[in-house]
Nucleic acid binder design. Structure first.
Length: 278
DNA sequence: TCGGAATCTACTATTACCTCA
DNA sequence: TTTGAGGTAATAGTAGATTCC
């Protein structure tokens, strides 16, 4: 990988933001949540380093935050939504809490049944005197969660609920798994970013060293010889008023041999002295 | 219409359990 | 059998957003 390969990628050393659209199937991307609010700020490292490495706000490929109006929804939906609430939370866990409380009164039995049915752990917790038992996901559960994560790195309440049912887990467990999975993804991506930046830094350091060396050589050369001696011919233009200098050589001669040595020719650099007049 | 309370989700940091070399 | 490391489920605390009164 050459310097250009690395550094002509639009990478800005420092942290910037790229709004690169990313495929949701990309495995190691912290993909913005479809359910998140547009203004919800997150730090996202892009997985594809081309063309730029970024640290910035979440992209715009998010669906608007799902608004739930349980007053308008059917009772069953309200129950479903309530079921996805954190079992560890002392309070109800979806928007419109006051409504939820009403719903909870109506459906607490159903929720209880659902919790017991859907959790392999809850029973143990209840029996085990607050012992913190650690759930071990089966291969099938892990595979399904991974598959789901590839599609959506975050879940909306319905997805979470459905997945929890499918996996025979509590919605809270699914939620935790996704949180941890996102964290691992981000950590992994951060490591990748770090490695990339290290390489880029090394390349830039080498390039800087090379340029410094080149500069020193040029300075040494400049001290040893008059400027015009080592200026490229293309950058040297004879001052119009001096064109006839050079042993009676006319304009034509001067144009043919612009560097015919005159006693004191007035060379000027068109880059630093763009004026046509001498 | 505005402000505050209640509640939600997502995030980060941390803890604690479990497995394996 | 013990132990330390690593993986990861679970917890706690916080911030920002939303909804309702």
């Amino acid at each position: 990988m050459g310097f250009d390969d690395i550094c002509n990628t639009g990478l800005v050393l420092g942290l910037g933001y790229t709004a690169a659209a990313r495929d949701s199937s990309s495995p190691c991307i912290s993909k913005p949540d479809n359910t998140q609010k547009p203004n919800n700020k997150k730090l996202i490292f892009t997985a594809n380093f081309e063309p730029s490495l970024t640290l910035g706000l979440s992209g715009s490929d998010q669906q608007p935050y799902k608004k739930i109006d349980v007053n308008k929804g059917c009772h069953e939906e309200a129950i479903d939504l309530y079921r996805q609430a954190s079992p560890h939370s002392a309070v109800s866990s979806f928007s419109s809490g006051r409504v939820v409380k009403r719903e909870r009164d109506l459906s607490s039995d159903e929720v209880e049944v659902e919790e017991k049915l859907s959790s392999r752990v809850s029973d143990e917790d209840e029996d085990g005197a607050n012992a913190r038992k650690k759930l071990r996901l089966t291969k099938e559960q892990s595979a399904l969660l991974e598959e789901s994560f590839k599609q959506h790195s975050t879940l909306n309440p319905k997805q979470k609920q459905a997945l929890a049912r499918q996996l025979n887990l509590r919605p809270r467990q699914v939620e935790v798994w996704f949180q941890n999975r996102r964290a691992r993804t981000k950590l992994k991506q951060t490591e990748v970013d770090c490695e990339f930046l290290k390489k880029c830094c090394e390349t830039l350091t080498d390039e800087n060293r090379r340029l410094q060396k080149e500069l020193q050589e040029l300075k040494a050369l400049k001290l040893a010889q008059p400027l015009y001696m080592h200026m490229p011919a293309a950058t040297l233009t004879m001052c119009p008023s001096c064109e006839r200098i050079g042993g009676g050589v006319g304009v034509e001669g001067a144009s043919k041999s612009p560097f015919s040595m005159a006693p004191k020719p007035h060379f000027y650099n068109p880059f630093t002295n763009p004026s046509a007049a001498c």
